[in-house]
Design a protein around this nucleic acid. Structure first.
Lengths: 348, 348
DNA sequence: ATCAAAAATGTAAGCGCTTACATTTTCACA
DNA sequence: TGTGAAAATGTAAGCGCTTACATTTTTGAT
């Protein structure tokens, strides 16, 4: 009983077991699995038969330890509970899968410290590379990653100046264009609802974009009323109410993302305001929600899925030492729907 | 130069390096990291100083290999590109993190074969446990998991009969209740837009729920027109159009989820139909979109985040051999908003 | 001071795989 | 049929950690 070399005895089979039952060395089995064309077809068949027979599948911890590569890529995103990241991440994962990599996920909840912790964790877990959102983080983290030779790609943002690998888009330019559309309609007084900007460079860049447009149009950027709040429909509504509760309220409210904008639209309607008759509202991202809003949202379309796919490819190419663009900027487009119009009579 | 024991020389430090610089054995360092109270405070300080000095962090591949545990839990979900899974997954991840576990993610794209492949991959990658959506899959997979002693928890569904560990809700019962609401309004002829049911037991159960209500109300279940389609707003619209294009169309269309329902609502309005004046429509899930729809959706609220949290706890407790409910059913609630009304005059 | 038991630490054997290097087999060509 | 180079396979040394077991140190009761 103790000599049962056959080990059906409810143990998980190892490479050595496969080798034994196939009558070859462990090296050969390993080659069958990893370097198929270094092996005779006959041997391959024998080994594969053993693999099937035993129900063998490799132990990745061991493989990773021995090979010094995990084929795992980590992603640290603010939250999945946000369609834009969820969708990008989904595309990212699909592309990784096509290249037999797996995805290790962590979320930072938009907190810088937590993100740092997650970076440490994921690298310790052996992520071969990392997907990060935005540029903003302690320089020591970039040093840490560099020291460990862990490629990190920044997504959702794009800064041609930065040495960091990235796949993103021009938050600032996109929002500037949208602001120009708004100003072009004759609005002179804008309000802005933003995500918290403290450690969110995308949010900051978008605001800067509006400011750009404002000063370019000869308006005073200091007049732009900005409220920062957490990402949610409800908060968008609250912020809207606040912005509109002043003496001479803005005629257009631009929002840092669609979720906030939808909240604003809803609240506007609740307040009995016409959109865009009494007040124009814009979003950013073009999530599914945008076209479904009570009044379909004028917003900026961002190619989230493409971003995910590109990010995956970049990282994989880098790991494979294939030539590879350091940084790619994806175009965004302005999506004019129904929430942007001219300011009300006498307000222009 | 070659004798530099100090190895700043851009190598990632190992346990042995820490041990050497702290002047203790590797075992002691390992204990400091994993079993802190088996170690003197003095030693601990020395070791920690070395850890900090070298910037050491453990290699999880090695740790996993040696310890036979990865502290990694895998989740295989149909897609993250669907708010309900994204949100649940987010909560799941947060809870795992609280317990120092990481999340390995894969998606099956609602394809049974792909799911099987992903199960194999994730277990090979050393996932200590698995989160799976729904019960439907080849029995051999359950056997496979059992043989490897990998606890797998089924979420999003609940079958008290099944031996499988689960955290879910009663898809059938919930949809039955909603159908009863619909029938209670006087509707006699219903249509149903479903996700593909082939390998989706949640979708099947929901249909069964409607059928239950129908036959209980003395109506003929065979009259229920059902269209199966892929998850998307657009497809919801198409299906709606098809259901309504018959001689004597249904007065209420129930949908397997909110996304399909929103598509239906939008299309109804495009067709010049009043909702619920001309046709009632219902959804399922209560995602954010639901209350934002052109007409706010009557639907079933499902506690996705709680489900994620419970799932994480169950799995972790199981891994820690803590006592643990085999299966928990979370309550759902019916969310009556605006898309359900009485059938049009003369149609009741 | 003494000594046994308890606490802390050390030693060293793997965990399951990859891979450099060594050995054997195969094969084209003379 | 014999030869050498190329192809296939085998041997065995780790990869960085955990942990059973052995050894040393500390502790506290005498």
């Amino acid at each position: 009983m103790e000599e049962t070399k056959d080990l059906q005895n409810n143990m998980v089979p190892t490479l050595a077991d496969v080798a034994r039952t196939a009558g070859v060395s462990t090296a050969t089995v390993s080659r069958c699995l990893n370097l198929p064309d270094q092996v005779t077809e006959k041997t391959m068949r024998r080994v594969m038969a053993a693999v099937d027979h035993l129900g063998y599948s490799p132990n990745y911890s061991a493989r990773s330890l021995a090979a010094g590569r995990t084929n795992t890529i980590g992603a640290i995103i603010p939250t999945m509970d946000n369609a834009i990241f969820a969708r990008g991440l989904q595309a990212f994962q699909e592309e990784l899968h096509k290249n037999s990599c797996t995805l290790l996920v962590a979320s930072s909840s938009y907190e810088e410290d937590l993100e740092e912790e997650q970076i440490k964790t994921l690298t310790a877990r052996g992520a071969d590379a990392l997907l990060l959102i935005g540029y903003h983080r302690q320089p020591r983290l970039y040093e840490y990653l560099e020291k460990r030779r862990i490629p990190a790609l920044v997504a959702w943002a794009h800064d041609p100046e930065s040495p960091q690998m990235s796949v993103g888009f021009d938050n600032r330019g996109a929002m500037k264009s949208l602001a120009q559309e708004v100003l072009g309609r004759g609005h002179k007084k804008l309000g802005y609802i933003s995500a918290h900007t403290e450690s969110n460079d995308r949010a900051r860049d978008r605001i800067t974009g509006v400011l750009d447009a404002l000063s370019q149009a000869g308006l005073n950027p200091d007049d732009l009323q900005i409220i920062e709040t957490n990402y949610s429909i409800e908060n968008g509504g609250k912020a809207f109410r606040e912005l509109m509760s002043v003496e001479d309220p803005p005629t257009a409210i631009m929002c840092g993302n669609d979720v906030l904008a939808v909240g604003a639209v809803r609240t506007a309607l609740e307040m009995g305001l016409q959109v865009p008759g009494d007040v124009s509202i814009t979003g950013f991202d073009d999530i599914e929600l945008a076209s479904m809003a009570p009044v379909p949202l004028t917003t900026v379309h961002v190619p989230h899925r493409r971003m995910g796919v590109f990010a995956a490819r970049s990282l994989i190419n880098t790991l494979d030492n294939k030539p590879q663009d350091q940084t790619v900027e994806l175009p965004t487009t302005i999506c004019l729907r129904k929430t942007l119009g001219a300011p009300p009579q006498g307000k222009a």
